[in-house]
């Protein structure tokens, strides 16, 4: 193990390390802690210049109450859910299929298609922006959640295919061959042999894509416009325009917007990290 475990070092080093950990963490998360404190402060703290000091009174309920009951935030949150969930389902479904095709079969063009997915996945969004917007407008899907979902599925399929394909490649191939010898149809092999083995990959993909899509801002700005379809990342800017300079409310709104992926991360931590660190170990 590297670096040398502290257990093997002197008592002083051990204690020092243990003491330094929380300190380092607080320093690292300082911006976040500040926002959390902002969100429970009263209005008057900001007008009187007490930005970073202790809250003069606890207004957490008031501030969050305003966010939930007097603004369009719940609407935006709901939109985010209705955009994110179908995207996750759609992407995982498509990527399982493409990953299966690219991972199991040897055929001409296999690597080419695989590389197309990878390359497309790294393309800067801006080169897609105007054509995708026009396409969405032409289909009558501008400013609908569906329009956003369709694009997200298409784009995320690139990344998810990379993941799924590599995962399938690592599966024991004899399993598939055995099934073939038995005369099992190929699509049955997919459903009954490969898919059950892919559960961890599906879980990892699902949490990752959930986070990516929930946090998407650019496409939300390009393809949607109002509270009826905008997700919370874009909604927060109109929310902020409404409460400009009201830091306590903007902070509360930001925290509400950030919470779902955070919760997802803590619930599914293992899968999340497995997904992100794909390829970091050989």
């Amino acid at each position: 193990m590297f670096p040398t475990p502290v257990q093997k070092q002197s008592r002083a080093v051990q204690l020092g390390y243990q003491a330094f950990l929380p300190f380092a963490l607080i320093l690292w998360l300082l911006p976040l802690i500040a926002v959390m404190i902002f969100s429970i402060k009263p209005d008057v703290d900001f007008t009187s210049g007490n930005y970073w000091g202790w809250p003069s009174s606890f207004e957490g309920f008031n501030n969050y109450g305003k966010v939930f009951f007097e603004s369009a935030m719940p609407r935006y949150l709901l939109n985010s859910v209705m955009i994110t969930v179908p995207t996750v389902i759609g992407t995982v479904a498509l990527a399982c299929m493409t990953g299966f095709a690219l991972g199991v079969y040897k055929f001409k063009g296999n690597l080419l298609i695989f590389f197309m997915f990878i390359a497309g996945n790294f393309v800067p969004f801006q080169i897609l922006m105007v054509p995708v917007r026009d396409l969405t407008v032409d289909m009558g899907l501008y400013n609908t959640k569906t329009g956003l979902v369709l694009f997200h599925i298409a784009f995320q399929t690139g990344f998810a295919t990379l993941f799924m394909r590599n995962f399938i490649r690592a599966l024991p191939f004899p399993l598939i061959e055995a099934a073939r010898v038995e005369g099992v149809a190929e699509w049955r092999i997919f459903f009954y042999v490969v898919l059950p083995l892919m559960k961890p990959a599906i879980a990892a993909m699902a949490v990752l894509i959930f986070t990516f899509i929930w946090n998407d801002y650019f496409w939300a700005v390009v393809l949607t416009q109002g509270p009826e379809s905008q997700p919370v990342t874009a909604g927060i800017t109109s929310f902020n325009a409404q409460y400009r300079a009201a830091y306590h409310l903007m902070s509360a709104g930001s925290i509400v917007a950030a919470l779902p992926p955070v919760a997802m991360f803590f619930l599914m931590q293992k899968h999340f990290i497995a997904g992100l660190t794909l390829g970091a170990v050989k």
Binding site: R133, V137, G226, S238, A241
Partner: peptide, 20 residues
């Protein structure tokens, strides 16, 4: 009636005038 954020409206008008 659809009320759109005043700043956002300035860019979105182009889309809805042609689209819907």
């Amino acid at each position: 009636l659809t009320v759109i954020d005043r700043e956002a409206y300035k860019t979105q008008i182009r889309n809805f005038l042609t689209a819907n």
